[in-house]
Design a protein around this nucleic acid. Structure first.
Lengths: 196, 196
DNA sequence: ATACAATCGGGGCGCTCGTTCCGCTTAGGA
DNA sequence: TCCTAAGCGGAACGAGCGCCCCGATTGTAT
């Protein structure tokens, strides 16, 4: 519908790109709660300039999250193509690491005052579709227990990101990741859970 | 130092108790971000009354978290005494369920703008001590892998609470809890983690 | 019943933050 | 170079919220 109606003046295009870049970094560092003024200041523009390009703070945040999701889908597909059995694990632990570096994405994922599926239905659909693919791949390869679906994976991502954010350093990798990995592996015998 | 300097008037004592109770429920429902006015309204008092009993919003929140931690320590010790091997799991999944019902506690635990150890050093110490006990118990009983410490358990709690909050219903129990349980169990062979 | 101090309530101050407005600046075609 | 409209910045507005203040109220000792 609203393609490039007019070519956008050179300085305006420059500012828009700069705002996007700075907003990405700032949301990653500070989360969705950061004031627009802070983003404007870091970008070296006035608040009005931000609002000319993005009608609300929410829309700016959404634009960045959508872009981020697209990057992750692309990265993950490449990983899964290289090693189908490991793709799901690579994806999972990559998402966990995002918890340490990208607070905005983590919040968007955990649904802290932001409904991903409602705000970005297309991006969410593609993301979930990609998850379904690599999960099925891993299950076919026998590296992940078969009684899990994409909703479970999403839940684990939210948990892993929270853990990663809680623990600042890579201790998480050395201790908790193996626990999760062991939990996701196909159980040896018939029983899925030891008790109850 | 500041014991009961004076007996506190009857209506004042009543209001104080009412504020505490209502604040507990409100923080649990809405999280630490809820306005003091909302708590005052629900308690049927003025905002000034809240501030006479608790000098800051933060101090009210702390009082409630401290109380909550004490309850959990007590409950968990009883569970662990009944079944040493299961105590750690009972504790872990109980904490996860708190994620669904007590947002305030979850935030305090995850450190969302609240440093538990700094704000309530005594309560935090007792809580961590209790965790060390039941973890050692479970490891002695052979139900939990030995290469984990209390920091790992805290990390898992943060993750589990985030997951429980993300998923509204008890699906979590049926799918994700067994994964965590399987991950925490003592590995069959020598290897702790399959790869890398 | 009376008096007085403890307590109460809620309006108000000060600050933060999202969003808007408008007079000034400047890109870029003629 | 000149003109015009696109674009700019940041002051300002309104809403939300923590916390304080003070005149009105009420428990309680006498």
């Amino acid at each position: 519908m609203s393609e490039k109606s007019r070519p956008l003046r050179a300085d305006a295009a420059r500012n828009r790109a700069r705002v996007l870049q700075v907003a990405y970094e700032t949301f990653a560092e500070e989360g969705a709660g950061v004031p627009i003024d802070e983003i404007a200041r870091r970008a070296g523009v006035g608040a009005g300039t931000v609002y000319r390009h993005f009608p609300t703070k929410e829309s700016l945040f959404q634009a960045i999250v959508a872009d981020r999701l697209r990057q992750i889908v692309e990265w993950t597909r490449a990983q899964a193509a290289a090693d189908p059995g490991e793709g799901l694990y690579a994806f999972l632990f990559q998402m966990a690491e995002q918890g340490a570096t990208d607070l905005g994405l983590t919040e968007a994922f955990a649904g802290s005052g932001f409904d991903l599926a409602a705000a970005l239905p297309d991006a969410e659909r593609e993301f979930t579709g990609m998850m379904a693919e690599i999960l099925a791949q891993a299950q076919r390869a026998g590296t992940v227990r078969p009684d899990l679906d994409t909703a479970d994976i999403k839940t684990l991502i939210v948990g892993l990101q929270a853990m990663r954010r809680f623990r600042g350093d890579s201790e998480l990798m050395r201790r908790v990741y193996p626990v999760i990995r062991a939990g996701l592996a196909v159980p040896d015998s018939a029983e899925t859970s030891p008790r109850t």
